[in-house]
Amino acid sequence: MSIKGYSVATIDDFVGRELGVSDWVLVDQARIDAFAACTGDRQWIHVDPERSKRESPFGGTIAHGYLTLSLLASLAIEIGLIPEDASAGLNYGLDKVRFMTPVKAGARVRNRVTLISVEKKGGGRIIVKTMNELQIEGEEKPALIAETLAMLVSQA
């Protein structure tokens, strides 16, 4: 997806504006299990549906917080955070993350992205800070809010 009028040259004009909202993404047990396998975090509240049904305050398994955090980058790219005239966009870091509401297995999430600031670093490099709100379908509070940093590299 692209954002109308959004480019390396016009990026300053978008500071303070919502860039967009991604499509919904399913966070099912298969995705949670795959994340557990990649990271080694096999805590029962994530990977044992039977025990979680009996013992968890959430009535079933929940996604890892870092799994939900890891979804932000691809969903921001889907929205169009990296302008078409940039040659690359790279993760640069996080300034603030708060996990607000657990994501239950089978829930759908989406990312609402607002451009907070732009810092031109020279050499065609631009640091952009965005506010990301990972919303859970049917829930009032978001799964998380995070200020993320990305480095854009212009083609010029």
Rank of each mutant, 00 (worst) to 15 (best):
H46M: 10
G138M: 10
G5P: 06
R17T: 13
R125F: 12
Y6E: 04
V113Q: 03
M1T: 14
G89L: 13
T130N: 06
S56N: 00
P102F: 06
L26I: 09
V128W: 09
N132E: 06
T101H: 10
T39P: 00
S7M: 12
K120G: 04
G60Q: 03
A88F: 08
M100L: 13
Q135L: 08
G16Q: 12
E137P: 03
A156G: 12
I127P: 00
D12R: 14
G65I: 08
D28G: 13
V103A: 03
R108Q: 13
M151G: 03
L26Q: 05
I145P: 01
A143M: 10
K120W: 10
K96Y: 12
Y66L: 13
T61H: 02
F35W: 06
Q155K: 15
G124M: 08
D28C: 07
Y6Q: 09
R108I: 09
R54Q: 04
G40M: 04
V113D: 01
H46I: 13
R125V: 08
K121N: 03
D33S: 12
V15P: 03
M1V: 14
K4T: 15
D28T: 12
I127C: 07
V113K: 00
A150M: 11
L115I: 13
R17F: 11
L90S: 03
D23Y: 11
S7Y: 06
Q135W: 11
Q29W: 10
A34T: 11
L149S: 05
T148D: 03
E133T: 01
R108C: 11
L90T: 12
G20R: 03
K53Y: 10
G59N: 03
S52R: 00
G122M: 09
T130S: 08
A88G: 02
R112F: 06
W44L: 05
V109N: 02
R98F: 11
A34C: 04
